[in-house]
Amino acid sequence: MKRIVPIGVAVLCGLTMLVDFFVAHPLVDRIGAILVEGVTILAAFALLLGLLVLLSTHARKLKRGSQPGLSLILLIALLGTLAVGVLLPGSATLTWLFDYVYYPLQSTMAALLAFFAISAVYRAFKLRNVHAWVLMISSLFLFMAQLPLAAAISPYVPMARDWLIAVPVTAGMRGILLGAALGTVATALRILLAVDHPYA
């Protein structure tokens, strides 16, 4: 019973949403909308749960003494932003926090990708097989072809770039997306028909 009820609820909701996808009818749409709102509410509660887990994890680290400084910074930043967001929504303080704390932090984190990409490339560009050759030549060419100097080298370079993106790259992407879509359908059917229930 402990398993049957959640699985039953999941199957029922899934099938309702499936019908809602295929059938454009006011009543079905309304039921679908209610379920969808339920998903949003559940996600919000899950976020609250996640927040509590994060708080407890770092409170424990603070107490235990493993990297307490970092945990302290996290807790102060989290609670401070939360307080400003709840008490002063849309205020200048919140905008200041976004502009001078969050925005630069995010940009810095993303900028690290340029560094990490180089160290990954160092390993991936070793020409030990055909794949590595294809990877290296296509990467260097496509990167170069997007630069303004590409057109200066030859007018055919941008044309070659457009052809590469429009034909082989798109074909490969479509193939992968079709396969992934089949996998998605199969996984969804397994859950809808209660063949599999990875959530419990």
Binding site: A120, A124, I176, A180, L182, G183, A186
Partner: peptide, 25 residues
């Protein structure tokens, strides 16, 4: 991951990787 653009990055970096529909297997 199944997202090809992210999978390309991960495949270049990880010791062992799957892309696309192999994730669903």
């Amino acid at each position: 991951t199944s997202d090809p653009s992210a999978a390309a990055l991960m495949a270049a970096s990880l010791d062992e990787a799957v892309i696309g529909e192999d994730v669903y297997a």
